[in-house]
Design a protein around this nucleic acid. Structure first.
Lengths: 136, 136
DNA sequence: TTAGTTGCAAAGGCTTTGCACGCGC
DNA sequence: GCGCGTGCAAAGCCTTTGCAACTAA
């Protein structure tokens, strides 16, 4: 079964068929779907599910920290269920494909104190852009 | 005068009063305006300027590589004229303020070959998120 | 039972488009 | 004068919202 689903249950998340389907659709690696794509796939299993519910559910998953929002790839936001293992994104400028990459040593989060301007920094996002093998 | 304007002229960019005003509004450091903000400020100098022209002009500046698009801060894209000096962004999760930060040594762009999956990587974006002094 | 969730439809924000007019070169 | 740039208004896409009906716990 879905790891994501397990964790959500454990957190006392109120479970409905709609939420289950959304969580199932998002489960897996290298998944970076738009809200519309999630709705499409969810509707394949549960035809009555509405866009509004998909948006609500995605918003909650993001708020719970179980799913990451990815912007900067096309117009629509993408949703990345791989929130447990820190990773970065490799984005193809041609077709918009997104791949997760896992840095070896990530001394990356280290923005020197002198460059923080009093900010309390709590996360770092890194996006590599280029062309994938198919688009080269 | 504006450095940006100088460069655009040098590139044979067809100059109109609208384009000049947009370029002037964008000139400077730590500027990260939305299209709407650019339009507002441009209209202060040139009241007839239309949103469509602002969008067209911003799109061209981005295509020319003179201005960077910044997504991931609120809904609307932001436009960053500081495209000449490589830099990263420090974003406040509270108020949406964006600051440019200039890394000391940026071995950052080095995604190991083994993690490239055949992509021809050509740029890296780094965003630090946290709370600014006023929002802490 | 009851508070939280859903679906619908409409509104909203941001951006793009089509086309006639205008202006830089 | 030619061809690109502009303005307008409308459409488009993505997302949010209000509210009545519904359902998991």
């Amino acid at each position: 079964m879905s790891d994501l689903l397990q964790r959500l249950r454990g957190r006392g998340w109120r479970m409905t068929s709609q939420r289950r389907v959304v969580a199932e659709v998002l489960d897996g690696d290298h998944v970076h779907l738009t809200a519309e794509e999630v709705h499409l796939r969810a509707a394949a299993r549960l035809p009555e599910i509405s866009r509004a519910t998909v948006y609500n559910t995605l918003g909650e998953l993001v708020a719970l920290g179980e799913v990451l929002e990815v912007s900067g790839v096309g117009r629509a936001k993408r949703y990345d269920p791989n929130a447990r293992r820190p990773h970065q994104h490799l984005v193809c400028a041609g077709c918009g494909t997104v791949r997760d990459v896992h840095p070896a040593g990530n001394a990356l989060g280290d923005l020197p104190e002198a460059e923080r301007f009093g900010f309390a920094v709590c996360s770092v996002e890194i996006t590599y852009r280029g062309l994938c093998p198919a688009c080269t």
